[in-house]
Amino acid sequence: MSVRRALPAVPLLLLAAGPWILPRDLVTALLFTFLLITLASNYDLLGGFLGLYNLGQASFFGLGAYVTFLLLLRVPLLAALGPAGSTVAALAGGAAAAISAVLLAYPLLRLRGAYFAVGTFALLLLLRLTVDNLPQLTGGSHGLYVSAQHYLSLRAAYLLTLSLAAASLLLNALLASSRLGMAMTAVRENELAAAAAGVDRFRVQQVAFVLGATPTGLAGAVFGLHSGYIDVSVVLGIERSLFPVIAAMIGGSGLVWGPVVGAVTLRAIDVALKNYMQLPVPAPAIYGGILVVMSLTMPKGILAGLTRAPQAAARSGSPAPPRPARPRTR
């Protein structure tokens, strides 16, 4: 039992050894993959469990990064503390993401379905505008730099993003079998019935919103401290917001490993196209083409496509339920 439980730790330990055994550009590529896994898993905490499609996941990434940078730039005490100061600032960046999620839940969770998606996207655009228009504070389009003493080394950034990705994954896995996870599924399946059964729809969604925002905020902080420079297009980028969505959908939304599979696939295609192929057309065109084909052939994602194929076929045979002879699910 305890051995089986410890099994996932083995690949994790191997991955953790990465910076010491792998070539530098692969380590960097993995770091970016971990970032995408974190954001995709966090996105899918709402997308998969609650059916709430957050197109503004990058808002929390940007908030985490900007708050971290502003603290280091504006609070002399933190700047003087060196690495300890960076740590405090990064944690504050994560906390800022969490607190904004608590507050943003009030307006955003009034929205349903497509309106929620649009609302979250509008929030991202609003943040971008705000940062652009407060150049004294945020550096505007010039971005912000922190001094070299605050830089995170590649190794440290790698280990931190790996931890964030693993923690996000663990969070989704634990949720799946938890009390909160049951409430989330119930709310997704039927809000009316959930309320009648005593579930506080708003509170459940708010908690999920915060849980999905916090690791993303910390990831933004780590990313910023690693690159030493942030601006709107990097930490509040439209792509930064949409790729987690694509990763979750390509991999398999609602499945713990779905966003991981999707993120790895996306990153692998990206790296392969950009670095290892001589292309006659621009890489994004091919990239887009591959995504279209994948979503057409596996609409429920790679994982679902691989594991659920026989079941799905059996179900589509009888749309109205006379009882299927299937003895159990779960």
């Binding site: 049951m182 409430a183 599924t185 119930a186 399946e189 039927n190 959930a194 059964a197 579930v199 779960r330």
Partner: peptide, 28 residues
């Protein structure tokens, strides 16, 4: 009728056990 269609029958009811009371059950 308003079942949680994708959840198992027992989990449909367990949701009520978990959330129906303030002092309800906490263990799934």
């Amino acid at each position: 009728v308003q079942p949680f269609t994708q959840m198992s029958v027992v989990d449909n009811v367990a949701v009520g056990c978990l959330f129906g009371r303030r002092d309800g059950r906490t263990d799934v």
